[in-house]
Amino acid sequence: HNLTITQGKLFFHYNPKLCLSEIHKMEEVSGTKGRQERNDIALKTNGDQASCENELLKFSYIRTSFDKILLRWEPYWPPDFRDLLGFMLFYKEAPYQNVTEFDGQDACGSNSWTVVDIDPPLRSNDPKSQNHPGWLMRGLKPWTQYAIFVKTLVTFSDERRTYGAKSDIIYVQTDATNPSVPLDPISVSNSSSQIILKWKPPSDPNGNITHYLVFWERQAEDSELFELDYCLKGLKLPSRTWSPPFESEDSQKHNQSEYEDSAGECCSCPKTDSQILKELEESSFRKTFEDYLHNVVFVPRKTSSGTGAEDPRPSRKRRSLGDVGNVTVAVPTVAAFPNTSSTSVPTSPEEHRPFEKVVNKESLVISGLRHFTGYRIELQACNQDTPEERCSVAAYVSARTMPEAKADDIVGPVTHEIFENNVVHLMWQEPKEPNGLIVLYEVSYRRYGDEELHLCVSRKHFALERGCRLRGLSPGNYSVRIRATSLAGNGSWTEPTYFYVTDYLDVPSNIA
């Protein structure tokens, strides 16, 4: 807008934040220059609390790290170098490059900038070799853009010569660093050979998330399962459950009422301010606690030095998902009996873990797994792929695949051998790939016309006998059925096997 004052003059007093240069501009645009008398524009009460600059400061050096910015700028000295009290560095987070010096300023003089007072450097006698002032900004957020400017702080001049310097606002972004852990990993099994893994992005990506790394490792069953005799009275049979499938998407929606109208769909109840505040506090606490764990609990591995020492970490090797089922080394339970199943799973520490690289999504279907087997899954978020990966501390989750139908069934015939004193040795093959492992066998036998009897055969007993022995049988026709019990439950009964026990007292003698 054009402003013209045809008559009258300007009068400025007691404006401590208004620089004289701005008042002189007002004289020019209003056409009143030359009308004012000496005392109409006070030299001592206008701009006496402001830094009124008329020179431009330029930054000469900028260096960044993930949490620091090192700045240096060209030296500046007023005509009387004693008038320079120091520099004021202003900075704040700036997602967009549209910041002005006066953003967030209120009537009390406060604003949204963080201000650092910096002492002037030592003055050199040689004007050509003056030290460049600077400042190291610490405690910054990774991968965050900051708006920065600097200006001088000078003393009051009796001659009211307006001098000083100020830089333009520059924008500097800190470097990326390792992201925080992925949030809320959930693993479920939808079949006997697959596990579905879902997660949420890290709360602090500290860069642009480029991919996720998912490692999985087959877990050995508890050692007590191999040692305890679950045929003993009072000892509860062990059981394991597989990871249940995901709930429906509708039930997972946030901010939804727990109660549904019987007449149909209901609208979600909005969260109160107290609920939102509580969630923010919980989120802040979780982030602080995660940072504490990362800094205190997890110790970084030592990389190899120039002395030739090897990095103890196993090298990563990509495998196809079809090879995942046989990740671990199978060892027989008892070496003397080769027909026992290889369900003991000690994992070799030198073995390469299978892994998958996930790009542009937060889910993965891990296939080719062994049925009813526990897996430990390790999830890392990465925001750099080359020249070397920059990934987060791992988040861990466990899951067990679903049982395989008929995996616990005894394959092959049940054979028998009759000894003296009416002892019958029953023999059968253990299931080759049971659900988890076989903890015991149930032997059901009966003599024709009598009630059915049951015998429990422990895992250890089966390994020693290759089956079991029935003792003290009365003469007669017998039928026997056997079924295995694994961590997933009972298998199917075998087809009945028949044998006849004679009275050993009636056996004919070869003595003449």
Rank of each mutant, 00 (worst) to 15 (best):
Ser203Cys: 15
Asn208Tyr: 10
Asn208Arg: 04
Ile209Ala: 13
Thr210Ile: 03
His211Ala: 05
Val214His: 01
Val214Cys: 01
Val214Met: 15
Val214Ala: 06
Phe215Pro: 02
Phe215Met: 13
Glu217His: 07
Gln219Asp: 06
Gln219Phe: 11
Gln219Trp: 07
Ala220Cys: 15
Ala220Met: 13
Asp222Arg: 13
Asp222Val: 11
Ser223Glu: 12
Glu224Gln: 09
Leu225Val: 04
Phe226Gln: 08
Phe226Trp: 04
Phe226Lys: 10
Glu227Gly: 13
Leu228Asp: 15
Tyr230His: 02
Cys231Met: 01
Cys231Ala: 01
Leu232Gln: 07
Leu232Arg: 14
Leu232Tyr: 09
Gly234Asn: 10
Leu237Ala: 08
Pro238Trp: 12
Arg240Ala: 00
Thr241Cys: 04
Thr241Met: 09
Pro245Arg: 05
Pro245Glu: 03
Glu247Cys: 09
Asp250Ile: 08
Asn255Trp: 12
Asn255Ser: 08
Gln256His: 12
Ser257Asn: 10
Ser257Gln: 13
Ser257Gly: 04
Glu258Trp: 12
Ala263Gln: 12
Ala263Leu: 12
Glu265His: 12
Glu265Gln: 13
Glu265Leu: 09
Ser268Asn: 08
Ser268Gly: 10
Ser268Met: 14
Cys269Val: 03
Cys269Pro: 04
Pro270Trp: 03
Thr272Gly: 03
Asp273Ala: 07
Asp273Ser: 14
Gln275Val: 09
Gln275Lys: 04
Ile276Cys: 14
Leu277Ile: 11
Leu280Ala: 15
Leu280Ile: 15
Glu281Arg: 15
Glu282Val: 12
Ser283His: 14
Ser283Asp: 11
Ser284Lys: 13
Ser284Ile: 01
Ser284Phe: 06
Phe285Thr: 02
Phe285Pro: 02
Thr288Phe: 07
Phe289Gln: 03
Phe289Glu: 01
Glu290Lys: 01
Glu290Phe: 02
Glu290Ile: 02
Glu290Asp: 15
Tyr292Asp: 03
Tyr292Leu: 02
Tyr292Ala: 03
Leu293Ala: 06
His294Gly: 04
Asn295Pro: 00
Val296Phe: 10
Val297Pro: 02
Phe298Asn: 03
Pro300Asp: 12
Pro300Gln: 12
Arg301Lys: 06
Ser304Cys: 10
Ala309Ile: 08
Asp311Thr: 07
Pro312Asp: 14
Arg313Ser: 06
Pro314Arg: 06
Ser315Thr: 09
Arg318Phe: 15
Arg318His: 06
Arg319Gly: 12
Arg319Phe: 10
Ser320Lys: 14
Leu321Asp: 02
Gly322Ala: 13
Gly325Phe: 09
Gly325Pro: 14
Gly325Asn: 08
Asn326Ser: 11
Val327Arg: 13
Val329Leu: 07
Val331Ser: 12
Val331Met: 14
Pro332Tyr: 04
Val334Gln: 12
Val334Arg: 10
Ala336Gln: 15
Pro338Ile: 13
Asn339His: 10
Thr340Glu: 13
Ser341Asp: 12
Ser341Leu: 10
Ser342Ile: 04
Thr343Ser: 09
Ser344Asn: 11
Val345Lys: 09
Val345Phe: 05
Pro346Lys: 07
Thr347Asn: 03
Pro354Met: 12
Pro354Leu: 12
Glu356Tyr: 05
Lys357Thr: 09
Val359His: 08
Ser363His: 04
Val365Ala: 10
Ile366Phe: 15
Gly368Ser: 09
Leu369Val: 09
Leu369Met: 09
Leu369Asp: 01
Arg370Met: 06
Thr373Met: 08
Tyr375Asn: 01
Arg376Asp: 04
Arg376Gln: 04
Ile377Ser: 05
Ile377Glu: 00
Glu378Thr: 14
Gln380Met: 15
Gln380Phe: 15
Gln380Lys: 11
Asn383Met: 13
Gln384Val: 15
Gln384Met: 08
Asp385Val: 12
Asp385Gly: 13
Asp385Arg: 07
Glu388Met: 05
Arg390Lys: 11
Cys391Pro: 01
Cys391His: 11
Ala394Met: 11
Val397Trp: 14
Ser398Lys: 12
Met402Leu: 05
Pro403Arg: 04
Glu404Val: 14
Ala405His: 13
Lys406Phe: 13
Lys406Asn: 15
Lys406Thr: 10
Ala407Phe: 10
Asp408Asn: 13
Asp408Leu: 04
Asp409Lys: 11
Asp409Trp: 12
Val411Leu: 03
Gly412Arg: 13
Gly412Thr: 09
Pro413Lys: 09
Pro413Met: 11
His416Cys: 10
Glu420Ala: 09
Glu420Asn: 15
Asn421Arg: 12
Asn422Lys: 15
Asn422Glu: 07
Met427Arg: 08
Trp428Tyr: 01
Gln429Tyr: 15
Pro431Ala: 04
Asn435Gly: 03
Leu437Asn: 13
Leu437Val: 10
Leu437His: 08
Ile438Val: 10
Val439Leu: 10
Val439Asn: 03
Leu440Glu: 09
Tyr441Cys: 01
Tyr441Asn: 01
Tyr445Met: 10
Tyr445Trp: 10
Arg446Trp: 03
Arg447Val: 12
Arg447His: 15
Tyr448Trp: 07
Asp450Ser: 10
Glu451His: 02
Glu452Phe: 15
His454Pro: 08
Leu455Trp: 06
Cys456Asn: 00
Ser458Cys: 14
His461Leu: 11
Phe462Gly: 05
Leu464Met: 11
Glu465Gln: 15
Cys468Asn: 03
Cys468Glu: 01
Leu470Glu: 01
Arg471Ala: 11
Ser474Ala: 10
Ser474Cys: 15
Pro475Leu: 07
Pro475Gly: 06
Asn477Tyr: 15
Asn477Trp: 08
Tyr478Phe: 09
Ser479Pro: 00
Ser479Asn: 05
Ser479His: 10
Arg481Phe: 08
Arg483Ser: 05
Arg483Gln: 10
Leu487Asn: 06
Leu487Arg: 10
Leu487Gln: 12
Asn490Trp: 15
Ser492His: 15
Ser492Asn: 03
Thr494Tyr: 04
Val501Asp: 03
Asp503Trp: 09
Asp503Pro: 15
Tyr504Ile: 06
Leu505Lys: 09
Pro508Ile: 14
Ser509Leu: 14
